[in-house]
């Protein structure tokens, strides 16, 4: 029986397995250092479709089908499909659920969506109401750019702290039985806001959310950073990750084995992505691809995923609100 610990955490019992995953990436990701760990790379942003939204949908659908194939499962065996993305009305997820025809729970957590979906799936499986759940998320640089910022052909100079929305998708299957790492614990974040208003400074804005969730996780589960082989934040990027480390040091935690997906997915020196990657697909592609494979090879045995998300919209920013942020943590253990 799973057990609620403190105000934010749950120890899952029996812990469900993350039995299969798949990831796909776009052109910029295909030129990055982790390209070899992606199941499929699309060399064109449009991926043969007519619009960027359609391209994102295609990538998400393809990724879900790849995950099913790798898990040797068909759609009828999946009890729930939990997905979310960055686009208004989470259209990529809803439209992909149409094709998959699996009972669908649409969620929105901005760039924290992966952990949100995995957490809910793990709770359903551990709670005994589902055998297999598929959690998935996607983002696309151009569809996000045109919704959140400017038309894609609009010319402006990006500030050095801006991040680059990752094009791609990730899907993971959570199963009651099977192989792979177990999802042993989740810590669900609280929304926080430290007054950042610049929608290009999301890394710094999200850093306190990551710190807050991580500290809750350590305190409630009586763990410390040395418990994990790797602590992985989602998309803080080069700036946010330093802000995060500085906050953690001030709070009395050192993080010796810490990485951020936003700085891993690209070669920051050679690719024109400024402070690194962001978007739902950033942690999805890195954690479900590169890191998942390394866990399965036994290179990591205990990994904590901390997915961060900014819950603003262009409207709230234009109306002068600061950016509310959240982070969800999820422990994967062999």
């Amino acid at each position: 029986m799973s057990q609620r610990v403190g105000t934010q955490s749950v120890l899952l019992d029996p812990p469900p397995y993350l039995s299969a995953t798949a990831t796909v990436g776009g052109p910029m990701e295909g030129q990055g250092p982790l390209a070899g760990d992606m199941d499929r790379i699309y060399n064109r942003l449009l991926a043969g479709e007519k619009s960027f939204e359609a391209a994102e949908l295609k990538m998400l659908e393809e990724c879900c089908l790849l995950a099913l194939g790798k898990g040797n499962l068909n759609v009828d065996e999946i009890d729930y499909f939990i997905a979310g993305d960055l686009l208004n009305q989470t259209i990529s997820s809803g439209f992909s659920a149409l094709k998959l025809s699996i009972p669908y729970l649409g969620v929105y957590g901005a760039c924290s969506t992966l952990n949100l979906a995995l957490s809910l799936g793990a709770l359903l499986v551990a709670g005994g109401v589902a055998q297999h759940v598929m959690a998935a998320t996607s983002s696309h640089n151009s569809s996000a750019e045109r919704q959140y910022r400017y038309p894609t052909e609009y010319g402006f100079k990006r500030p050095p702290h801006a991040q680059w929305t990752v094009t791609g998708a990730g899907a993971g299957i959570i199963s009651r039985e099977g192989g792979g790492p177990k999802i042993t614990a989740i810590t669900t974040g609280k929304v926080v806001d430290l007054g950042v208003k610049d929608p290009l400074a999301l890394g710094a804005a999200m850093a306190p959310a990551a710190a807050s969730t991580l500290i809750s996780h350590f305190q409630e589960l009586e763990r410390d950073p040395s418990y994990y082989d790797l602590i992985l934040t989602g998309d803080l990027g080069q700036v946010g990750r330093q802000v995060y480390q500085e906050i953690m040091v001030r709070e009395g935690y050192s993080l010796p084995r810490y990485h951020d997906c936003g700085t891993m997915i690209y070669n920051l020196e050679r690719q024109p992505v400024d402070a690194g990657g962001s978007g739902c697909a950033c942690i999805a592609v890195v954690a479900l691809g590169h890191i998942y494979q390394r866990i399965r090879r036994g290179e990591f045995n205990r990994v904590l995923l901390v997915a961060t998300g900014a819950l603003h919209s262009p409207t709230t920013c234009l109306q002068g609100n600061s950016i509310p942020v959240i982070a969800h943590a999820l422990a994967l253990e062999n």
Binding site: D193, L194, G195, I215, I247
Partner: peptide, 17 residues
Amino acid sequence: MAPRIPSRLKLTQQEFD
């Protein structure tokens, strides 16, 4: 909306800025 600092952190708004 007023900023909301996570209660578990000792961090102050000023320090964060």
